[in-house]
Design a protein around this nucleic acid. Structure first.
Length: 290
DNA sequence: AACACCCCCTGTCGGC
DNA sequence: TGCCGACAGGGGGTGT
């Protein structure tokens, strides 16, 4: 399920149950997810306290009092359940038969947190906290879009001379992290930029902002913040019901709307879908010409 | 370095 | 009803 807003929603949902809590029991039910679990995975977790639950890009980071950090990625279908309350992958049915429950954490307070991941594109690793920034999977991650490093100058400098198309540019986690297929489509629609034009058009030859580069930081933040708000409200709703609310409850302007009318005022075109780098790109050919 | 592909895995959905 | 292909929110690895 996870792009940045969803991972952050999961983090906020898990934090009250895990932060400051000791793991009294950890169950690892298979040898691997996307990657093999680290050696002695259970032994290195049991008895440890999670001092803080953080996030970097789409990674969840469980900092332990042992000096290690539990790095978790949800892949496409990863989700956590707190004793019946589901966090993540809202598109798949709630609950389930536990068929894909791969890891179970039990805290000293008696809470049970289960990780479920049908496709197993997610993973869990352990890394030394002190050198976490230098970890292979963390080192090359780009700027956090909700942080203060993302501005027009940064985008222009990064885009300068790039031949890859705008869609790939915004999907590239080593430039701006956290955006995935859905939100890139939504951002480009709001920016009225074509997904298919080279990213280099965002910058002048000397690397100054050009065309949509000025608008992008604000639009990226707006799209992510709206999703975050929706995720939060979804989460609150979910605690009170057993339905599969959320995520797709949020109304997207283009994502998943192939053949439906463009929502832009005065536009009578329809949303198209094109496969780009093996992923679907949704866009309005009339509104996104630049 | 930057870029274009391929692949990992399971489930679901639409068409026949 | 069954079968089959297309598709799904990610990203690591490889080859040019």
């Amino acid at each position: 399920m996870p792009e940045l807003p969803e991972v952050e929603t999961v983090r906020r949902g898990l934090a009250p149950t895990l932060e400051g809590q000791r793991l009294v029991r950890v169950e690892q039910r298979r040898p691997d997810l996307r990657f093999p679990f680290p050696p002695d995975f259970v032994r290195r977790l049991e008895g440890r306290t999670i001092t803080a639950l953080g996030r970097r890009s789409k990674y969840l980071l469980g900092h332990l009092d042992s000096g290690e950090t539990l790095i978790m990625h949800l892949g496409m279908t990863g989700r956590f359940t707190i004793a019946g309350r589901q966090l993540g992958d809202f598109t798949h049915a709630a609950g389930g038969d536990g068929k894909h429950d791969h890891v179970v954490f039990e805290t000293a307070m008696g809470a049970t947190v289960t990780y479920n991941d049908a496709r197993r594109f997610g993973f869990m690793l352990l890394a030394d906290t002190r050198s976490l920034d230098q970890h292979d999977l963390i080192r090359d991650i780009g700027v956090e879009p909700l942080g203060n490093q993302l501005d027009a100058a940064f985008i222009a400098a990064a885009a300068r001379g790039r031949k890859a198309d705008l869609k790939a540019f915004l999907m590239d986690q080593s430039i701006i992290c956290g955006l995935g297929n859905i939100y890139v489509c939504e951002v480009l629609f709001r920016a009225r930029l074509s997904p298919f034009k080279p990213a280099g058009r965002l910058a002048t030859a000397t690397g100054k902002p050009r065309r949509g580069a000025d608008d992008l930081p604000g639009l990226i933040r707006a799209v992510l913040m709206e999703a975050l708000d929706a995720g939060g409200s979804t989460l609150r709703d979910f605690q009170k019901t057993d339905g599969t609310l959320g995520y797709f409850q949020k109304a997207f302007a283009v994502y998943g709307r192939e053949g439906e009318p463009c929502i832009a005022a005065g536009c009578s075109d329809t949303i198209r879908r094109k496969v780009q780098a093996n992923r679907s790109t949704f866009y309005c050919p009339t509104c996104q010409r630049a």
